[in-house]
Amino acid sequence: MAKSDSERRTDAVIDVRELVKRFPTAAGDVLAVNGVTMQVRAGEVYGLLGANGAGKTTTLRMMLGLLKPTSGTARIAGFDVAKFPEDVKRNMALVSASAGLYQWLTPRELMHYFADLYDVPAAAAAARVEQLAELFELRKFMDRQCAGMSTGQQQRVNLARSLMHDPPVVLMDEPTRGLDIVGSKRIFDFTSHLKDIGKAVIFCTHRLDEAQRLCNRFGLMFRGRLQLEGTLDELRSVMGRESLTDMFLDLMAREQQIDRDSSSLLAPETSAGKL
């Protein structure tokens, strides 16, 4: 598989330009994502921040090729999502808090199953299962059905499963939602580990304090638009605020002021919910 038009190549593993997603709904079209452009390099954790319904998940789904963008392009590891969707998927992992496990399968079966789906050769898969079992401390219950596991155990199995094919890009969609302190800490440690080993990571969350500690760069999303982008220092100098939370509140207030000025009705919230 050749990377065809690679003239626009950057060193960014994730290269998203002008992504737009418009959902037709009963109340008329909704712009869930409105012209999002971002680049993420290897070894970088990009914090995609925003309130629920800001368009974060929709952006991730378009990067993965699960949703077709209304316009714009997304390139992952050099592959255009529109042209090589399978290659894009092969180069990406999706870690999501809402992901479940197959209750009647064991972690080992589950991991082998996903290895097969990602065309990982059997020998490599077997080695990989051992490594991940080691890393996430799954040894004790590798051959027990997932049904009886604790939330923490399920979370670890889910992480191991999503990384079976060892991709260069990891998308984390609200990975700490519903987890306790230990679980959240495991996610943070794991994410900074991914950063260390040179993965390009997008970390989506609405918990800004979490993100502030973890990410190299930030994108603040609001109503489908990437309102602000940069490192923490850059953002501080632009917004004149110390914490991301304050910046975000300022941003929201500003948006609402614009709305009032133009005396227009509030744009409908995106209808893109969870799967």
Binding site: N91, E134, D166, F190
Partner: peptide, 29 residues
């Protein structure tokens, strides 16, 4: 398909390194 290698055992975060040291053999896999 360029530049990713199996990274797991080379760079582990603090929390995971413990596990790694307990199982030196698996490094040779």
């Amino acid at each position: 398909m360029t530049h990713h290698r199996c990274w797991l055992l080379k760079h582990l975060p603090e929390s995971c390194r413990r596990v790694k040291e307990e199982s030196v053999e698996s490094q040779k896999s």
